[in-house]
Design a protein around this nucleic acid. Structure first.
Length: 399
DNA sequence: GTCAATTCACATGAAAGAGACCACGGTCTAGTG
DNA sequence: CTAGACCGTGGTCTCTTTCATGTGAATTGACGA
C-alpha cells in the first residue's frame, strides 16, 4: 500500500498542469482574443432585443475552431446578464449535431421544450403535435423575445431538409406575445446554397463570417491559455509556436491547437519531464490522429467494419488505388465466409462516401471511359497506425 | 484522322420498407367499497 | 366503481432495399480527306 501511496503522491508533484480544464474543448474562456470585431458586430445586431424589439435573424459562418460558438455564447451571456431582471429576453443554445439529442426536427423541438421547462416523450408523438406544444409553452412564458442559437445548423439541415428552418421562421406569425430570433451557426460556408430561397431571405437577414485564426493569433490564444493551465516554465515559446503552426496548417483551428497542447502536456507528464518538448507535440499530433481513427473504427457498425476490412485487405494486396467494384466483390465473399447478410451495392456506395467524409479514405469519382464511372479510393490512414487499425478490426469482428 | 454516338460501371436521388422504439386512447380485469 | 394491465393504432428514427435516373470519357464506327 505504501508504494502505491508513493505513486499517488508523486503524481501530484509531477503534474505539469495547474488547471487542465482550461485546455479542454468545453472550457469557456473569460476573454476571447482576436474576435473583438465579430463580437461587437454580433452584439450590435442583437442589442435591440434588450428593449424587447425583434432584431434581425443572424447567420454566422466559419470553419471549426474559429471561435464562433464561444463568441456567440459570450454575447448571449452578456445579454442575459443585462436582461436578467426584466423578463424580456430568453436565450437558448442548442447544438444540432449532438447525436440522439438534437439531430432531427422532432428532437430539436423536444429539446427546446425541455429547456423551457416542459416535457416531451423521446418519440411517439407526431411532429406537428410537438410544434403545438412548443408554441403553447412559448406563449405561456413571460418573455417577449426568444433568441434561439442553433449551432452546427448545417448538420441539421442536411439531415432534415430546410423545411424545418422555414417552419421556424414562420412561427413568428403565429405567435402573439413572443417573437423568435434565430441565430444560426454553420461550419459550412456553402450552407446558404443548400437552402431554399424563401428561407434564405427570411432567415439570414444578417450574416457574419469568422475568418480562420492565423498562426500569430493562435500563438496569442495558446500563450494565454497555457499560462493559466500549466505551471510556470512548462511551456516554452517554441512549443507554442509549433502548436500554432500545426493548427494554422489545419485551417486555423484553435480547438485543435489547444488539444495538441493538452495532449503534449499529458505525454510529457507521463514521461516524467518537467517541460514540454517540441517532440511531444509531434507525438501528440500522432496520438490525436490515431485515437480519432481508432475510435471511429471501433465504434462503427459491423457492416462498416467489414467494408473497411475489405479496403484494408485490397490496399495491402495491390498498393495502388482500388475501386468500388473491387471492394464490393471482396466484401461479398467476406460476408459469405462469415455468414453475414450482404448489403446492396447501393448501400456500400453510401458507406464508402461516409468513410470519405470521416476522413478514413480519400474517394474521388473518376470515369474510366468505357470501363465506367467509379470511386477511386485511397486510404489516408498513415502506415504507422494501419496495423493497429487492422488488429482492432479483426478483434471486433471476431475473425 | 475526325466526330458523334455508344457504352460501361458505377454515382446519385427518391421513395419506401423493416424493425426498434414509444405515446395515446380504449378496453378488459381484478380489486375495492 | 376504479386503478392498472393490456392492446391496437399510429408516430419517429435508423438502416436498408428498390427503382430510377445521371454521367464522363474510352471506344466504336461512320464518314470524309
Amino acid at each position: 500500500m505504501n508504494s502505491l501511496d508513493k505513486i499517488f503522491d508523486s503524481v501530484k508533484d509531477r503534474s505539469l498542469f495547474k488547471n487542465k480544464q482550461i485546455l479542454q474543448s468545453n472550457y469557456f474562456p473569460g476573454e476571447i482574443l482576436h474576435r473583438e470585431k465579430q463580437i461587437k458586430h454580433i452584439a450590435s445586431i442583437l442589442a435591440p432585443s434588450l428593449l424587447g424589439e425583434k432584431t434581425s435573424n443572424l447567420f454566422i459562418y466559419g470553419k471549426t475552431g474559429t471561435g464562433k460558438t464561444v463568441s456567440v455564447q459570450h454575447v448571449a451571456n452578456e445579454l442575459s446578464k443585462r436582461a436578467k431582471d426584466n423578463k424580456i429576453l430568453r436565450i437558448e443554445y442548442l447544438n444540432c449535431k449532438l447525436k440522439k439529442v438534437a439531430d432531427t426536427e422532432y428532437r430539436i423541438l423536444a429539446e427546446l421544450i425541455r429547456k423551457l421547462g416542459g416535457s416531451v416523450p423521446a418519440t411517439g408523438l407526431p411532429t406537428d403535435q410537438v410544434y403545438l406544444r412548443f408554441l403553447e409553452i412559448l406563449e405561456k412564458s413571460e418573455e417577449k423575445l426568444f433568441i434561439l442559437i442553433l449551432d452546427e445548423i448545417d448538420q441539421a439541415v442536411k439531415k432534415i431538409s430546410d423545411e424545418f428552418l422555414y417552419n421556424l421562421t414562420r412561427l413568428n406569425s403565429e405567435l402573439n406575445d413572443i417573437q423568435i430570433i434565430v441565430v444560426g451557426i454553420s461550419n459550412d460556408l456553402r450552407f446558404l446554397d443548400m437552402i431554399d430561397q424563401r428561407v434564405r431571405s427570411s432567415l439570414s437577414e444578417e450574416e457574419l463570417i469568422f475568418p480562420p485564426y492565423n498562426a500569430l493569433q493562435l500563438q496569442d490564444i495558446l500563450r494565454k491559455r497555457a499560462n493559466e493551465s500549466f505551471k510556470s516554465k512548462v511551456v516554452s515559446e517554441g512549443v507554442i509556436a509549433k502548436c500554432a503552426a500545426f493548427a494554422a496548417r489545419e485551417h486555423g483551428d484553435a480547438r485543435r491547437a489547444l488539444d495538441l497542447l493538452r495532449v503534449a502536456g499529458e505525454i510529457a507528464e507521463r514521461e516524467a519531464n518537467s517541460k514540454i518538448k517540441i517532440d511531444h507535440i509531434d507525438m501528440a499530433n500522432d496520438k490525436i490522429e490515431r485515437e480519432k481513427i481508432l475510435d471511429i473504427i471501433e465504434t462503427a457498425p459491423k457492416q462498416f467494419q467489414l467494408i473497411l476490412f475489405s479496403i484494408f485487405a485490397l490496399i495491402k494486396k495491390n498498393k495502388q488505388s482500388i475501386f468500388t467494384g473491387d471492394i464490393y466483390t471482396y466484401y461479398q465473399s467476406l460476408c459469405k465466409k462469415a455468414k453475414i447478410d450482404v448489403l446492396t451495392q447501393r448501400r456500400v456506395s453510401d458507406i464508402l462516401a461516409d468513410f470519405d467524409m470521416l476522413g478514413l479514405i480519400n474517394a474521388r469519382v473518376i470515369s474510366k471511359g468505357r470501363m465506367g464511372r467509379t470511386r477511386e479510393i485511397r486510404l489516408v490512414i498513415p502506415d504507422n497506425i494501419l496495423d493497429r487499425c487492422q488488429t482492432s478490426l479483426i478483434e471486433s469482428l471476431g475473425f
